[in-house]
Design a protein around this nucleic acid. Structure first.
Lengths: 157, 157
DNA sequence: CTGGGTCTTGACGTTCACGTAAGGCCTTCT
DNA sequence: AGAAGGCCTTACGTGAACGTCAAGACCCAG
């Protein structure tokens, strides 16, 4: 029983997807421009399928781990061609292997960064516990604006 | 026995650090502009200490996990102030906690991305094994240029 | 003392990933 | 009928993170 029969052929408007994934219509149109996603049209309006939604999800995940849109595009392409074009697939394979290595190294970086931050947090906590225990456990906004830093971009306001 | 006595007070030129970490002089000067690093001077020339080198390492690691330079700056600042300025520290603490959560979520994304890529590799491998086993295990450059993709930026060549 | 190499400071250019109007089409509500 | 609201395209603007000259200063070898 193919999936299309089980799933209602649900579609999404651009705004629905944006709300679900916390991005802007401009971003979706941009991804479309770049060939990462290609929704159907109802007249002029974009109509997104489940498949489009899945692609969007992969795009956003890819972005979050630091992939460029062009790289994400290469990955997504794989699921479109699947067969044929052997040399293209070989290129993809080599690139993907590189990517996997890069991601694994990146994960090590993350672990180190978390360690650094966690140690910093420990230090900060013990310090604050002695000086200003009232400020502990506050969300950022509840505390204060920040001081400017040397090379900070000037921003009118 | 403080560290300065055990370590030779070794210094680095801008180029040495660049070669070690694979970045450009322009980048180092840019980080300095942004207040992330502040080497001594010998006349006009920058002289980097071990401490500067450590900061640079943190900067690059931070970048690799997707932190903005401004965020990296906040983290580095912590190691400079250390004490005093309790509210500032409280802000840092809150931000760092947020950051840790973000990084952990990012690590999950990486794991998922690796899974996706690994599955893709498996598929590609089995396909290539049947069609073009000669192309397996090739590095990217050894294979072929790529086809253009729809929204590709035009680049004179 | 001329050339080469390495450093410096501007200052403008570039790429990426969008943001932000400006203006038009369509449907729906009042 | 007309105003509101959602979608569209086109086009120019923007912030981050540098790249890329240009024009000097400094030092050393020949």
């Amino acid at each position: 029983m193919p999936a299309e029969l089980r799933r209602p052929a649900r579609t999404f408007t651009i705004r629905q997807l944006c709300q679900e994934f916390g991005c802007t219509p401009r971003a979706l149109r941009f991804y479309e421009d770049k060939g990462l996603i290609f929704p159907e049209r109802d007249g002029m309006n974009r109509v997104y399928s489940y498949k489009d939604r899945a692609r969007l999800q992969l795009i956003l995940r890819g972005k979050r781990v630091g992939l460029a849109l062009s790289e994400i595009g290469e990955i997504l392409d794989l699921y479109e061609l699947g067969d044929g074009c052997a040399t293209q697939n070989a290129i993809s394979l080599a690139k993907f292997r590189e990517r996997i290595r890069a991601l694994e190294s990146q994960r090590r970086d993350i672990d180190m960064a978390v360690d650094v931050l966690q140690e910093a947090c420990t230090r900060l906590e013990s310090q604050l516990k002695q000086t200003r225990p009232d400020l502990l456990e506050q969300p950022v906004e509840a505390i204060r604006p920040r001081r400017p830093r040397p090379g900070e971009m000037r921003r009118a306001g």
